[in-house]
Amino acid sequence: MYDGGKIITGLIIGIGLLMAPFFYNAGKAAKAPEPELTAKAKEAKQCVMEKAYMTSSHFSLLDDWRNTVVRDGERYYTAKSGKVFYKSLQMTCLDCHSNKSKFCDQCHDYVGVDPYCWDCHIEPKEKK
């Protein structure tokens, strides 16, 4: 191998730079925030789906809702319990979860996602 030494030194420096953020942040992991429930949400006990599903896959449900509402005009959702929900992020989800900053943003910030829902959909006015 020509210039073997140079290549290996280069590789080590490159990999080192790539790993730097991991070393830098090692041991500093912040605790995952727990979404806070409003009184109204607590009282309802059951969301549209069970909690585990909502935690892990609420975005799939929301994606399905927006597609079926906007594109197919199907605006009502029947939950397993038989309860009928009006499929609306703004009018249904956030009616219960009116504490967007504690219920949505905290966790989204933690995992570093920035859904563009709120570019258009109106956030509930939170009582400070």
Binding site: Y76, V84, F85, M91, T92, D95
Partner: peptide, 11 residues
């Protein structure tokens, strides 16, 4: 559905 939704105050 609308009636049900209305009764339940669901939007």
């Amino acid at each position: 559905v609308a009636g049900l939704a209305g009764l339940l105050g669901l939007g």
